[in-house]
Amino acid sequence: MLPDIFDDIAIEWTNMLGTGAQRSTQGRDSDDTPVTDSTSPPTSGSRKRGSSGATKSTADSPSKKAEPPMSPSSSGRAKKSKLVLAKLLSKMKADDEQTSKALSHLNAEQHQRREVERQAYRQCLQLAIDCGIDDGSEEYFFLHEHFKDELERDAYLLIETREARRSWIQRAFEKHRRG
């Protein structure tokens, strides 16, 4: 039965299109389809049983190459494929530009944030010197590490007097020495 279904299909090997005649299934039931030997190819003089039960020559049927293809032409598909690819590339370029802009903006924000942190770090060290810490002392080198922490810098910058800053540094240094 399967060979009969594809009996009127021709394949154009150059562009891999299958073509076939329009078939009508009206008035046919499963008993009308003959069983053929699928191992031997049909010949041009073969006979085929029609829906009326009479034999009919397949030599009278139109040429398979003259029949319209079952799928759209390859040039139409190629144009449609090119259009889809062009749209896809355009979208990717637009997304790439947006990504580049976003990364540039993010990079600028990160640079600005690091610069603000550096200024606060330098300000804390300068305030430590202003309250009497020698820049060659152990306390000063301790503060180099201590002020890398943003919370410690913020806490130190909130202190208003030199004496209070000096006391804060001494307590933090003693705590560090203990442990």
Rank of each mutant, 00 (worst) to 15 (best):
T58N: 09
T58A: 08
S61Q: 10
P62W: 04
P62C: 03
S63M: 08
S63T: 05
K64T: 02
K64W: 04
K65M: 13
K65C: 06
K65D: 07
A66L: 08
A66I: 06
E67M: 14
E67G: 13
E67H: 04
E67F: 10
P68Q: 05
P68F: 01
P69T: 04
P69W: 03
P69F: 06
P69D: 01
M70H: 06
M70A: 05
S71V: 08
S71K: 08
S71M: 12
S73R: 05
S74I: 10
S75I: 03
G76A: 12
G76W: 05
R77D: 02
R77F: 08
R77W: 11
R77K: 13
R77Y: 09
A78Y: 02
A78T: 10
K79F: 00
K79M: 04
K79Q: 09
K80V: 03
K80E: 04
K80H: 05
K80I: 01
S81Y: 01
S81C: 04
S81H: 04
K82Q: 15
K82Y: 07
L83N: 03
L83S: 11
V84A: 10
V84M: 08
L85T: 11
L85I: 14
L85V: 11
A86K: 11
A86I: 08
K87Y: 06
K87H: 09
L88M: 15
L89M: 09
L89C: 03
L89F: 13
S90H: 00
S90V: 01
S90D: 05
K91Y: 01
K91T: 00
M92E: 10
M92V: 00
K93D: 08
A94R: 05
A94Q: 05
D96Y: 03
D96A: 09
D96F: 01
E97H: 05
E97F: 03
T99D: 13
T99V: 04
T99W: 02
S100W: 04
S100G: 14
A102Y: 07
A102R: 10
A102P: 04
A102C: 08
A102I: 09
L103E: 14
L103H: 11
S104L: 10
S104A: 13
S104D: 00
H105A: 15
H105L: 14
L106P: 02
L106W: 15
N107P: 00
A108D: 12
E109S: 12
Q110A: 14
Q110N: 11
Q110M: 09
H111C: 12
H111Y: 09
Q112N: 11
Q112K: 14
R113Q: 15
R114K: 07
R114I: 03
R114T: 01
R114Y: 05
E115R: 14
E115W: 12
E115G: 08
V116L: 13
E117A: 15
E117L: 15
E117D: 13
E117H: 13
Q119M: 13
Q119Y: 13
Q119G: 12
Q119W: 12
A120H: 12
Y121L: 02
Y121K: 04
R122E: 10
Q123P: 00
L125W: 02
Q126Y: 03
L127A: 05
L127G: 04
L127S: 02
A128F: 03
A128S: 11
A128I: 03
I129Y: 01
I129V: 13
